[in-house]
Every structure is written in structure tokens, then in C-alpha cells.
Design a protein around this nucleic acid. Structure first.
Lengths: 146, 146
DNA sequence: CACAACTGAATTGTGCGCAATGCTTTTGAG
DNA sequence: CTCAAAAGCATTGCGCACAATTCAGTTGTG
């Protein structure tokens, strides 16, 4: 991924992966102060986004959407639970599965989160078309393993 | 960053930031098995990339290039030191600064790392032009705060 | 039914990332 | 020269990511 003179190991700034790494961290930095007001981290916010789409999903279903495993999700969900945004309960039909449900407080965050979206959109200098292009290229990059 | 129906908080898959978040993690996943053979993590590899460009930089100079602070770099450099890839020593001209130098072993990794680059390039299905486009959009996205 | 194989989640251990704090050294204003 | 402010790095604490392991529960096969 270098595109630099062939004898080098690839200059840092030339690398696509470093650009992605930096951009992803910059995005989280932008989210941080806004999500702090909601008492959320960015990965916690992503989990809520999935639950707002459909409540009551299992841990592994959330993991499929976010590409995260139980090692990441279990403690994250415990913290969301402790903060009163979700509940977790074993399913009676299959006691291996844990269903995650939003609390009233968890539902209530949704409208406040919509403002976060608008704030961030305003901060970006890229055009809508460029953002869509960036999103689609990122998705195809991630999908090509790498 | 939603581009979904306006009443929603933004579907997960519509979000640019989630696409970046996923792509950056996918990139690290692709690097992991290759860098494992070199005894490196991806952030450690980034530090070496910077040092291969110019040896003997200070901690803060490395931080400027990678957008990382001493809280991240200090323990990371300690591990690179313990693995024998670098040395750290206080500068005599300014005892606040710590100069980071490559060891012979650290230099030797450079050619092996070049192969890592080629392996990854082969795995990507995007065209060279698309990769350059993704890199530049990512950089502009990160640069726009967010 | 018995029991091995599998599934889903939690736990453990390591290494970032980052805010906050502490500490040594240097700089600079008076 | 003095001493307060700043710079540079290290440390602490917390929350991801992720590999590896463990464990309870379920499924499938004989």
C-alpha cells in the first residue's frame, strides 16, 4: 500500500491503512465530547444504534452487525446495563442466548443522539458526495479481507 | 452522517464513521498475522515506519507524526525496547527529551516489512486509483476536525 | 437415553488510545 | 539570579479490541 519509491518500506503518509487508522480515530475524537454529554462511548453508541433499529437482539446478533465478539461486547453491555440504558436476560427458549433490551432511558437517548449526528455533519468539510464515496470505498476495503 | 430517512437516528450501515471504524479494524486484522511473524503490533509497526524514515527522533516527534501522545507511546516504546528493536536515551542537550534509536535488529526488520506491504496489496480488491482516492478522502476527513 | 460435539456468552490476559496527573528539566520574565 | 511557567516524558485509570480459554446449555447421533 505504499506507492512510494520501491526501495523504501513505504512512507507513512503514503499508506492507505494509516490514513484509515487516523481517520477512524479522528472520528471518535469528534464524537467523544458530544457522546460524553450522553454518558456514552462511541462503541456503546454503536450498540445503541443497532438496538434502536431493533430491540431485543442477542449478544451474537449485535456482534454480527458490529463485527465484535463477546470478549468486547460482554463487558461493554455490562457497563450499558450498569448505566441503566439496557437490560440483559437469558432467553427461556434457549438459555445460552442473552437478549438485550433497551430501557426507557435507553430509548430516550435516541432523539438526543440525532442531534449528535447533525453536529458532526456540520463539522465535516467534505461534500455529501465525497462522504458517500468515502463510506462506500471504506466498506469495499473492509469487505475485501482486506 | 446518516443519509437515511430523517426520522431515524441514522441506520448503522449508512454511517461514514462506522465504515471507517470497520475498515480501520479490518486493516489491522489483515496486518496482524503478518506482523505477528515479525513480533510487532500494528502501532509498533507504524513507529518503526517513522524511524526507518529518520532514526533518532524524540518521543514527541513520533507523536506528531502518528497523532499519539506519550500516554500511548511511552509503554509502546518500552515494549519495542524490551524486544530489542529500539533504544531510548535522554538527550544530553535537553534532558527532558528522549531520543529513540533503532537497533541493528530494528533496522533488519525493514526489508521483511516490505514484504508485508506486498502481501497486503495483493489481498485488496480495490484498484490502485480507488486506493489513492480512499487514502486522500480519509486524510481530508481526518483533517477537517472531523 | 447417553454422550460427544457444538453453540453462545463470559472471562482472562495483553496491548492500544486517551484523559488526567505527576515529575523533572528548561525557559523566560523581572 | 530567582522563581514561576512551560515543555517533555512517564504513570495511572478506564474502556475498548481480540485471542484464548472456560463454562453452561443445546443438538445430534447411536
Amino acid at each position: 500500500m505504499s506507492f512510494a519509491h520501491p526501495e523504501s518500506a513505504g512512507r507513512l503518509e503514503d499508506q492507505v491503512c494509516f490514513a484509515l487508522y487516523s481517520a477512524a480515530r479522528a472520528a471518535q475524537q469528534a464524537y467523544r465530547p458530544l457522546l460524553d454529554d450522553l454518558g456514552l462511548t462511541y462503541p456503546q453508541y454503536l450498540v445503541l444504534l443497532v438496538l434502536w433499529e431493533q430491540d431485543g437482539q442477542t449478544v451474537s446478533a449485535l456482534g454480527d452487525r458490529l463485527h465484535l465478539d463477546s470478549g468486547t461486547l460482554s463487558p461493554l453491555l455490562r457497563r450499558l446495563d450498569e448505566h441503566g440504558f439496557i437490560t440483559r436476560e437469558r432467553q427461556s427458549t434457549d438459555a445460552r442466548r442473552v437478549a438485550v433490551h433497551l430501557t426507557a432511558e435507553g430509548h430516550a437517548l435516541r432523539s438526543r443522539a440525532a442531534e449528535v449526528q447533525r453536529c458532526l455533519l456540520d463539522a465535516v468539510t467534505l461534500s455529501t458526495e465525497e462522504l458517500l464515496n468515502l463510506r462506500d470505498l471504506s466498506r469495499r476495503f473492509a469487505g475485501s479481507d482486506v
